[in-house]
Design a binder for these strands. Structure first.
Lengths: 200, 200
DNA sequence: GGCGAAATCTATAGAACTATAGAAAAATTG
DNA sequence: CAATTTTTCTATAGTTCTATAGATTTCGCC
């Protein structure tokens, strides 16, 4: 398996090209020719970088989620209050969508087309991410910031879902103000639509 | 164009079969043979029901979103407080995912593969839905239930995103308790994680 | 039971796609 | 610059897919 930390520059370019094409056309809608075209090489030549089209998808997905999870690991370990950690999580999630060249989007929308074998690593990373998020909410409850009736598992899925939804919008509309979206997501999750009557 | 109100039973079955296959394999990953197999007919015979594979996708998407929007229209016109309307919206959204045989999921994840021409109707319906949702939030603000600082457009996108995320989970896990998810989404959106100190 | 319409079948043309093999070119190294 | 390694190219085998045409069967109805 490929470790995105050890990518040679050319392999890195190949993963980015594949990510971009998969993000635009979907895994099945994209052809190996499309990826080759994006790299400026011939169709057959991409098999120098990927053992198969399926492996290309696996590499893109792994690249998309890998250091994204380790970033979450750092946030979770840090010594900040709940609100700051939540904000950091959302920020990491949404900025990833813009910066990581659509690989995270590919991970989220196309990874299920991989056979189970090739999803093992991805699944572990995804579970780890969700677990850290759940622990974050449990911390929030323990600290008295989050209502004790909040279901941590539900909350984690919701945050992931909300961030992915905004991530898709961000990828589709390059003019969208990411930091505005981050702040509003943070505010909505913390306070809801009604909000606490803090300012009363 | 096809109007889902006027579907003959057999055409209806065809749309459901196509929806199911597209939801499972994606538009490009699914073949006309897959759809035919699901209906128990030969590959070439599906062209009796659809002019082309692309038209099949268009029909599925339209079926998926059509009365779903008109349901929202009814909710919006009704004479209920903001909270009830929000709950009705979420309920309609999430139960659609389970009942409409995955056509709504196909609409959400595959419609962008249609050429612009065939998306005109879908786009109009989607915009209408978002607009009704925005007006709902503006009503909430006017009624003093929703904080005036809430951005109605942002809120609408967020509700749609959150519901779609849970919809995907619902489709993927048939054992999931839909009404539990509905209540928790409603609560999270209204009160956020911190919640109002109602019960203090 | 026979007629017209609806539904399905068979067979296939034509296009696109994946993956491989071996040659060729480019880059790197001693 | 010669040897070696890395990268790319050409050509193609083999498969799969969409869509069509025309034959065939099933169905509703008088």
């Amino acid at each position: 398996m490929l470790d995105s930390k050890n990518l040679k520059p050319k392999q890195h370019r190949a993963v980015l090209a594949a990510a971009s094409v998969f993000a635009e056309k979907g895994y099945h809608g994209a052809s190996t020719r499309d990826i080759a075209d994006r790299m400026g090489i011939q169709q057959g030549s991409i098999y120098y970088y990927f053992k198969s089209k399926e492996d290309a998808l696996a590499d893109v997905c792994l690249f998309g989620i890998e250091d994204y999870v380790s970033h979450m690991e750092t946030t979770a370990m840090s010594d900040q209050p709940f609100e700051s950690k939540l904000l950091a999580t959302i920020t990491s999630h949404l900025t990833s969508y813009r910066e990581r060249n659509e690989a995270l989007k590919v991970h989220n929308s196309e990874r299920l087309y991989l056979p189970k074998k090739k999803r093992t690593r991805l699944k572990a990373l995804g579970s780890r991410y969700r677990q850290l998020l759940e622990e974050l909410f449990e911390q929030g409850i323990a600290d008295g910031v989050v209502r004790p009736t909040v279901d941590a598992h539900f909350a984690a899925q919701s945050v992931i879902g909300l961030c992915n939804a905004w991530g898709d919008l961000i990828v589709r509309d390059p003019g969208l103000d990411v930091f505005d979206a981050i702040q509003k997501c943070h505010d909505l999750l913390l306070n809801g639509l009604r909000g606490r009557p803090d300012t009363d």
